[in-house]
Design a binder for these strands. Structure first.
Length: 278
DNA sequence: TCCCAGGCTCTCT
DNA sequence: AGAGAGCATGGG
């Protein structure tokens, strides 16, 4: 049973085995986390910088954060209220999914800031992880807010005030115009990001796809990684390949309720192993 | 050099 | 409604 302890400005999380930092922070759902040579992870989310680490006894430490930030931001960000153990039990009724769960152990689905997630996955299309991270970094450095050594992700208002020429520094290619369209529609209220978690999946997807450059895959990434839609199922090239090889295109019945979480395990399993190479 | 990248839009049937 | 070219940029 998990519990939290607050001491010396740090937060300790005990009794939470289903939280692997590299799997969760480097599995392709978020792009602003990195690990130093001492296994300490650092990143910025919701305008806050955080360092965290898994200790030898299995506990997780969040360094230099307040109780308030923990409950306002990180508790939800790291999806700490969700019982992954029972989800994994359910998914493991299928033997192939059981293997994927074991291989991908400790992946948690993050609840990221909606506008950041939207921009990140717009940038991700027809792109590779290294370049995605570079473009996002330049986006923050050029248009985010500088705060004591780090940059926040730019607001929609800030981006909406820019021109396509301003965005040339990102070297985002054809995606720059999509970012502007997203920012403008969010600012005008034509797309209401804050209401997406209250809508049925199909309606939420349709809402996001009003943005030029947002198709079903990017929309589902947003819904899964920042709007608590755990049935959203982003279909990228890897998943299409994996689904075809592993399941004959159809996700097993026992996984439907948590399709998005299953998706992430399959994605990690398939991409990280040589599973799909002939 | 060439091929490809966590896709999408546009155009043409 | 389904298929296919083109897209900006740079990593391998």
């Amino acid at each position: 049973m998990k519990n939290f302890e607050f001491k010396n400005n740090n937060i300790y999380i005990y009794g939470l085995p289903d939280f692997d930092l590299p799997h969760t922070l480097d599995c392709g759902q978020a792009f602003r986390w990195s690990c130093n040579d001492k296994n300490v992870w650092s990143g910025v989310a919701y305008g806050k910088y955080l360092e965290l680490e898994k200790l030898d006894d299995g506990s997780i430490v969040l360094y230099n954060t307040t109780k308030q930030d923990f409950y306002d931001i990180w508790f939800t960000y790291f999806d700490l209220e969700r019982d992954y153990e029972s989800i994994i039990v359910k998914l493991s009724e299928n033997e192939i999914l059981k293997k994927a769960c074991e291989y991908s152990h400790g992946i948690r689905i993050l609840n990221q800031e909606p506008f950041e997630t939207l921009c990140s996955f717009i940038i991700s299309q027809n792109n590779n992880i290294k370049r995605i991270k570079g473009i996002i970094e330049r986006l923050c450095e050029n248009f985010g807010e500088y705060k004591n050594g780090y940059y926040t992700f730019p607001t929609a208002e800030k981006l909406a005030s820019l021109t396509i020429d301003d965005l040339a520094v990102l070297r985002a290619g054809f995606r720059a115009k999509y970012l502007l369209d997203a920012a403008k529609k969010v600012v005008s209220g034509e797309v209401d990001l804050n209401n997406l978690k209250n809508l049925p999946l199909d309606d939420a997807r349709t809402e996001l796809m009003k943005i030029v450059g947002v198709g079903p895959k990017v929309a589902d990434c947003c819904l899964l990684f920042s709007h608590h839609h755990t049935t959203a199922f982003p279909k990228d090239v890897w998943i299409k390949r994996a689904m075809s090889v592993l399941f004959g295109d159809e996700l097993p019945e026992n996984a439907q309720e948590y399709a998005g979480i299953a998706q992430q395990y399959i994605f990690f399993y398939a991409r990280d192993t040589k599973l799909l190479e002939d």
